[in-house]
């Protein structure tokens, strides 16, 4: 059975497949980026690699405090600031997602309740669609970020 990293953003629970998680950090030194778009908190130095950190609660369009746990994604080369990381769990009673958020692939039940399984690729695409029209992040920039 697939292992899932359970994390919390505000009062909502989300999950990430373990294979798509590179590392979990807590309150690393965050470097702010000038003229950064809304939602981009800054960047961290992860083993000599610059990783952009997004505020997950702002990406959801919700209101709340920015989390201090940083979840670095494996393939997308990005990190999400979440409020809490509850550890690994097993997904049971899995249902298809994408109703509220297009980047939620499945909805599953865990010991803490219902959680949405995040699709990093879809989340990346959603971020690209949201940030590109503003001119804040171009496709080349995004590709450059994600290709590193």
């Amino acid at each position: 059975m697939a292992r899932t990293l359970l994390l919390a953003s505000g009062r909502a629970l989300f999950g990430l497949d373990v294979k798509e998680v590179r590392e979990v950090l807590k309150s690393p030194p965050l470097h702010y980026v000038p003229l950064a778009p809304a939602g981009l908190l800054g960047a961290i130095n992860l083993h000599d690699v610059v990783v952009p950190v997004f505020d997950f609660i702002q990406l959801r369009g919700a209101k709340g405090e920015t989390g201090e746990h940083i979840v670095v994604l494996q393939g997308a080369c990005m990190a999400l600031a979440v409020n809490a990381v509850h550890g690994l769990c097993h997904r049971t009673i899995v249902m298809p997602g994408g109703v509220m958020y297009p980047w939620v692939r499945e909805v599953f039940l865990c010991a803490r309740g219902l959680a949405g399984l995040i699709d990093p690729v879809a989340l990346q695409q959603s971020l690209q669609r949201r940030l590109s029209p503003t001119g804040a992040v171009t496709t080349e920039q995004w590709s450059g970020w994600t290709s590193r």
Binding site: L5, V18, K19, V21, E23, K26, L88
Partner: peptide, 17 residues
């Protein structure tokens, strides 16, 4: 303990991967 927990979590993630 929190760092240990986080380190264990990352170890679990690495082990799962």
């Amino acid at each position: 303990s929190q760092k240990t927990n986080l380190l264990a979590l990352n170890a679990s993630i690495e082990a799962a991967r």
